[in-house]
Write a protein that binds this DNA or RNA. Structure first.
Lengths: 205, 205
DNA sequence: CGAAAAATACCGACCGGTTGGTATGGTAGC
DNA sequence: GCTACCATACCAACCGGTCGGTATTTTTCG
């Protein structure tokens, strides 16, 4: 939050704890992940944990933050050159999403979706955090769609923010289904339909 | 012991426990819902709980079952006359979904989605249960789409099961987003886009 | 029928293990 | 000697589940 970040003198304990928390909470969720387990996974003791994070909830917040940071970094990479055709960038981005769940190491689980589902109804603080992340992501998509509209003739009017929310919802729901069915392919299929739908919004989609 | 206020009119403790479990787990999820809390909410003791359900996991399974039973009952009602035009039935069904989240009393939360998200990754038994429910629901939608294809000329070929999964995914994701944003309207918007997309599948959509 | 017997429904104190969190002490670098 | 960093021991609350016992309903059988 402060301009002067502590990243330069960061011993690995905090990072290892964050990685462990992300991994465990992605698999089991918040409540089923214990502080002790995070410590074991990170290879540090509880003293280190509560030195770096004031509570379990605090590391969950930090984990969501870090998770979203990494996702955005990947999306930015997938989108490619900002001067390219926005529609092409959206296509590349969706293709990146499809590919990402196909990578064997990368289970089709989103920490943000997991914690939103589990905590939004009972923990107002985490709900707010997740809401902000969700809105940030959707806003990015909406900007891309707006940019596309400025270049391509829209076949019919549409609310880009609404489309953004639809894509976000479809993405989260797809991950849920893919995890439950143990079949990531549903994500690919769903996103293909999403691409087709976006195509119908533009004249030469 | 206090005078029997309602014990005599056979108020099945099991039903009250199930209702309580559904309500609490829909709000807080599985792990954050304690057996004690379910008992208090149901107004029965722990003895009654473990008489009717052999474990906490068992009541979660039963709760999912009962929840899906109720949902299917509602969907069947919304679908209306089976001899009607399948496309009209699908439309009525989607409208029913939109309306359902607008009812103030009915928070936009699906127990099936909640437990799928929370447990599918760590509890293989519950994962299987949820998978079966998800597949049952999707199969129903696919049947409707197949029926529609038999009557209406499809503008282009499509896999009805795949469309079913997309609708299911979009529904679950929409609920997740609606809950996190505290705005059920996103569900309505998303389902409207889904209706539009289904329209593009048929000639006179 | 009616009483004994058995199954069912429910109660609530209790238990062993777990949980998030604390208190305290140590150590390395400035 | 001060601060950042980490280790160990410990705790009070809580959790899922057990258990011995009681009340009520259903079944068995003379």
């Amino acid at each position: 939050m402060v301009a002067k970040t502590e990243t330069f003198s960061n011993p690995p304990a905090r990072d290892k704890l964050l990685d462990a928390a992300i991994g465990l909470m992605r698999d089991r969720g918040y409540n089923a992940t214990t502080v002790d387990h995070i410590c074991v996974e990170a290879g540090v003791t509880k003293g280190a944990f509560f030195h770096h994070f004031k509570s379990k909830e605090a590391i969950a917040e930090a984990a969501v933050d870090e998770w979203c940071r990494r996702r955005v970094a990947r999306y930015t990479e997938d989108l490619g050159d900002p001067s390219d055709d926005p529609l092409a960038r959206i296509d590349r981005w969706l293709d990146g999403l499809i590919e990402s769940v196909r990578e064997p190491v990368e289970r089709p689980v989103c920490l943000l979706g997991m914690l939103s589902q589990e905590m939004a109804g009972s923990n107002s603080r985490m709900r707010t955090v997740c809401q902000a992340k969700l809105e940030g992501w959707t806003g990015l998509v909406a900007q891309l769609l707006d940019a596309a509209r400025r270049i391509h003739a829209p076949r019919r009017d549409f609310d880009s923010l609404q489309i953004g929310w639809m894509l976000n919802s479809l993405w989260q729901g797809s991950l849920l289904v893919a995890k439950t069915r143990r079949d990531p392919e549903v994500v690919a299929n769903n996103l293909r339909h999403a691409k087709a739908y976006i195509g119908t919004l533009f004249a030469n989609g």
